[in-house]
Design a protein around this nucleic acid. Structure first.
Length: 210
DNA sequence: CGTTCGATTTGCT
DNA sequence: GCAAATCGAACGC
């Protein structure tokens, strides 16, 4: 299931649970928003052009490996590597509906009180679940400090909507492809470009300098 | 070795 | 709406 193209895995991960075990506590949430990064050909990917560096090495690992990177000098983002070894495709997890360990999440988030603000963004959820580069490269398919679990038994499959990816620079046509998936109407998704208006989504943002 | 910039978040205008 | 925060990776010379 995890070994497939990122645009196939991303929508399927919606509804899965992300589980973090730390300090004897279990912090977890249901995945409600994902984005696919399609590998060497994808201009928005860290592996664009086949780039392979110490930072993105995990993207080239086998399906089910975690890719955690540090950005903007202060935030971490968590991805699920999903293609075959040597094929750097990954799914960015952008938001969770918190399930367990809410108090620990609040503390890790610096006293943020609103549950809505705990995991509604890729940087937020990493802070809430204490995910950092020490977890880069870990196996997400086995119970451990960080792993994936299927939807809760009996859970109804959420209605999913798709839209363009968020926060990209100028990546040409790759900026308009609808490679983001999220639960329709969910209050837990990242606010920015939530796409609940029904329109296709505005023009690609952040085109600094010509 | 210097410069640019980022798969973001937050707070202020 | 817009800019600051903050630092390492990537890239040019």
């Amino acid at each position: 299931m995890l070994m497939a193209g990122a645009d196939d895995v991303a929508p399927r991960l919606i509804g899965f649970r992300l589980v973090r075990v730390v300090g004897g506590l279990v912090l977890s949430g249901e995945i409600v928003e994902t984005e696919a990064y399609l590998g060497a050909r994808d201009r928005a990917s860290h592996a664009r052009g086949g780039r392979r560096t110490p930072r993105n090495e995990s993207m080239y690992a086998r399906a089910g490996t975690a890719y955690v990177y540090f950005t903007y000098g202060m935030h971490h983002c968590f991805n699920v590597v999903c293609a075959g070894e040597g094929d750097p495709q990954a799914v960015l997890v952008r938001a969770l509906a918190p399930l367990t360990g809410l108090d620990a999440m609040r503390e890790a988030r610096g006293g943020v009180s609103a549950a809505r603000d705990l995991c509604s963004g890729p940087g937020k959820l990493c802070q809430a679940l204490q995910i950092n580069r020490t977890l880069d490269g870990c196996d997400l398919c086995m119970p451990g400090p960080l792993y994936l679990a299927g939807p809760e038994p009996g859970a109804t499959a959420p209605r999913v909507r798709r839209d363009r990816r968020v926060g990209l620079g100028d990546v040409g046509a790759w900026g308009t492809r609808r490679l983001r998936w999220f639960v329709t109407g969910s209050p837990w998704v990242s606010v920015k470009g939530a796409g609940e208006t029904g329109k296709p989504g505005g023009p690609a943002r952040r085109n600094k300098r010509a």
